[in-house]
Computed example of a mutant assay.
Amino acid sequence: MKAKSKILGPRQLKKWVETARKKGQKIVFTNGCFDILHAGHVSVLEFSRSKGDLLVVGLNSDASVRRLKGPTRPVNTQADRALVLAALESVSAVCIFNEDTPYNLIKLVRPDVLVKGGDYKPSEIVGREFAKKVVRFALLKGRSTTNIIKKVSK
């Protein structure tokens, strides 16, 4: 399967999810900016995929990343970030969202499992009410896009 075919708009994603559910497949959802892909990202994506049959990744749009991370971010465009994510074996589908949180996307997907980083308290996890189960992932220490940018900028 070509990576580009895994990048879906909300309407396409809704149909994709319906088809997967009819097949009895367990859908996992996670989200993030995934600006500069690193080992921490790969770890959370592989962990997420291990929790079900299919992994949907909600990807913050460029505008959303700027609002959350500041005017110098993202480093890579949403199209490039989506393509890199979609090329990973663990990722089944990628959908870009413009809001600051993936609330509406999680509501659309209604995942069997919602995965979020361990830096979030369960009560802070957006969209948890739409998931059958919420799982937190212990982040890899020292792995972050911000740290990579700081290293490169020195």
Rank of each mutant, 00 (worst) to 15 (best):
F130G: 05
P111Q: 11
A138W: 07
I125K: 01
I106H: 02
A138I: 14
L140M: 10
R128Y: 07
G142D: 13
S123A: 15
S123T: 15
V134S: 00
L114D: 13
R110M: 04
I125V: 14
N104W: 08
G118Q: 12
R136S: 15
L105Y: 08
F130K: 04
F137C: 03
K141L: 12
A138R: 15
G117K: 09
V134D: 01
L139P: 06
D119C: 08
V115Q: 00
V135L: 11
I125R: 01
L105C: 11
S144V: 11
N104Q: 12
G127A: 05
R143V: 04
K107F: 03
V135I: 14
V113K: 00
V113G: 01
K133S: 11
D119A: 08
P111E: 06
L114F: 14
K107P: 07
K133Y: 05
A138F: 07
K132P: 08
F130I: 10
S123D: 15
A131S: 06
G118E: 13
K133G: 03
R128L: 11
L105E: 08
G142Q: 11
K116M: 02
S144A: 10
G142K: 11
F130Q: 07
D112V: 12
S123Y: 12
E129G: 05
K121S: 08
P122F: 11
V113A: 00
L140T: 08
D112Q: 06
K141I: 12
A131G: 07
L105M: 11
D112N: 14
S144I: 11
V135C: 09
R143K: 15
V126I: 11
A138N: 13
G142R: 04
K107N: 11
G127H: 04
R143N: 04
N104T: 04
P111Y: 09
K107A: 14
T145H: 14
S144T: 10
L108T: 05
V134E: 00
I106P: 04
A131Y: 04
T145K: 14
V109D: 03
D119R: 09
R136M: 14
V126L: 02
D112M: 06
T145N: 13
L105K: 07
I106K: 02
R143Y: 09
V113Y: 00
K107G: 06
K107C: 10
P111A: 09
S144P: 12
